[in-house]
Design a protein around this nucleic acid. Structure first.
Lengths: 345, 345
DNA sequence: ATGCGCTATGTTACCGCTAACGGTCCTCGG
DNA sequence: CCGAGGACCGTTAGCGGTAACATAGCGCAT
């Protein structure tokens, strides 16, 4: 650094400074500041005052090393721009706020390599727990998680073996359920529009469940359209126009997420297409945005907030039996038919 | 914790384990793992192999205490659900990824008390820098920042005195600029729709700049509408309907953010209102979402990505003169007239 | 041979805090 | 009056690394 950052040219404060200022031992100061152990009311007040006057801020680095306990929870998610994950984070924070634990977020950008790096980085801070999105990890990442010696919660997805605890929904079944609903409504020529992300396993599983249900009815997807990057709403519009001009006979479009679904819906409304009569639409995630559209898009809620809360509760031992590992919670997504799937016939 | 988390019943590994496994001193292992100092090729390889085989993960708590350096940058923002902040974060990450520094995010929910708490918590980890949104802080928070002895960058806003460095735009001028554009287009009966957030100082400053420019032209806001919580898009719709039914004579609506602006635009389109002929609209932020609408909303880009990047560059000393404190960067927001402001007359 | 400079490695002394234990009063029942 | 037990506070010994300073070995010019 090129410049000085000691406004008052003092080195940073330590417990010793507070102890000298208040005339007690460092240990007593430590006890006061952590609110632990017996300290008389009078000394407590004196120490508190001294600490505040000096502007003392404890050093958790030193504290963590000494106590072998760190009040951090590593939260590893693929992205922050998806809106789904901030909502999960909100759930986590809600629960963690009451405890001493603090979430630290790492973002992987859907890259296994980055996940590995981020995880390594996080674990090197010796957090007291890890919440990580998804069940798919590199071998190295899996090994790190297994050997970390702390509770691990994999979230968002329950379709596969868990390392320790797991909280989420079955995306396979979610896709299935949506397909069955669509079929029950009489739609038959179905197209899919999704993201070009090989590492979005949950989207993949939804599609697998979806096509499996179609296959069970002797059907297959008629057409697909993928996108990559850019404004999802705009892409949804463009892709919808593209797929419909290619296959005007399609009677249903299944989108891998609500954002492109909303784009598609906007296109259909603008183009004067009869929704849900001639064409049905459905997305996934139950994003708040949809509430603002004139026509409500059919969607499925992935219980993001609840997933976050449950994961945090596991780490804090707030489970039914107080266990903080080996817990498995499968939530059931709610299917909201909105106004873009016609009534079953 | 109720359950055991030592799959292999070993305590967690330390440098000593690696040193014993590779037959060199702990110091040499430390050098290898940090890639610092001279170590022969052969021992380096041996140590690396041992570390990998054991699955050793360094303990940054101990390392940080010993070296008095912590590769963390505290990033303190009001919210994650605003989309603006994740984008700033992206900018920060882009720059920090190349350095050894790692961002740690704290969220304040626009509450000064929470900001103070989060800041205290963050500083207790002794980060090597702080990036904090806004110039308004409690006295205690300001004192902590001043005395932390590390570079501080306040971002998003330059209208006011900075503690150390600052990167952002002038929201006052942004509001002014928008008002002038609107006036130049001939609109005269102007309404405002915004959030009910006393602590969103940037929104407040925009509105102040906006009304100041109106006043300079002898005008004032004709009506206002505020909301609080819920889906911004929907609220935008509802508020727009409400304000227009109350004051059908308004010829322009200025929104405090793009999300409610987009909601308003959708309402107008659905209601068949002539935009921008009879009614003009404008928002703020340049969110990606707008690209997906049939009609592009007038907006102003707050240079979020650039703000994040510049802030991170200051902390890493990547400035013109290598300084990492006392830097001031004012960016100029771009006004995008979109298709909801008519041509100047 | 001598000593210099370099590379490669080891030793020592902490970093700031807390767990664990010890000590000192004081109270109070027997 | 004594000892047990509690309230309160101090002392000691690390936690797992790293900075800073040796130290050992080697090639090479003198």
């Amino acid at each position: 650094m090129a410049t000085d950052h000691r406004p008052d040219s003092r080195r940073t404060l330590t417990l010793r400074d507070v102890s000298e200022a208040s005339g007690v031992s460092e240990m007593t100061v430590s006890r006061v500041l952590r609110n632990r152990g017996d300290v008389s009311r009078s000394t407590r007040d004196r120490v508190m005052k001294a600490a505040k006057d000096l502007g003392y801020v404890p050093n958790k680095i030193a504290g963590g090393l000494a106590s072998q306990r760190v009040n951090l929870v590593a939260v590893i998610i693929p992205s922050l721009s998806n809106m789904v994950f901030p909502e999960v984070l909100t759930g986590i924070s809600q629960v963690l706020d009451d405890t001493g634990l603090q979430p630290v977020v790492g973002v992987t950008n859907y890259s296994p390599e980055r996940e590995e790096r981020v995880l390594y980085e996080m674990l090197s801070w010796r957090p007291s727990g890890v919440i990580v999105a998804g069940l798919e990890h590199s071998d190295a990442a899996r090994a790190m998680l297994t050997n970390a010696g702390i509770p691990i919660v994999e979230i968002m997805d329950v379709d596969g073996p868990a390392i320790d605890s797991v909280v989420g929904i079955s995306h396979h079944r979610a896709g299935q359920m949506m397909a069955q609903t669509i079929l029950a409504a009489g739609y038959r020529r179905i197209g899919f529009l999704g993201t070009q992300m090989p590492h979005d396993h949950r989207a993949r599983k939804r599609l697998e469940g979806f096509t499996a249900a179609l296959a069970a009815a002797g059907l297959a997807l008629e057409d697909r359209e993928y996108y990559d990057g850019g404004s999802a709403l705009l892409k949804g519009r463009e892709m919808t126009e593209a797929i419909l001009s290619r296959r005007p006979d399609l009677d249903f479009l299944y989108y891998s997420n609500d954002m492109i679904g909303a784009g598609g819906l906007l296109h259909c409304l603008d183009a004067g297409i009869d929704v849900p009569g001639r064409l049905g639409l459905a997305g996934f995630n139950g994003v708040e945005l949809l509430d603002g559209l004139r026509v409500r898009l059919a969607t499925m809620d992935a219980c993001r907030l609840e997933v976050g809360r449950a994961a945090a509760e596991i780490l804090t031992g707030k489970t039914a039996d107080g266990r903080s590992s080996g817990v498995r919670i499968e939530l059931t997504p709610r299917l909201d038919p909105g106004q873009t799937i016609r009534a079953p016939r």
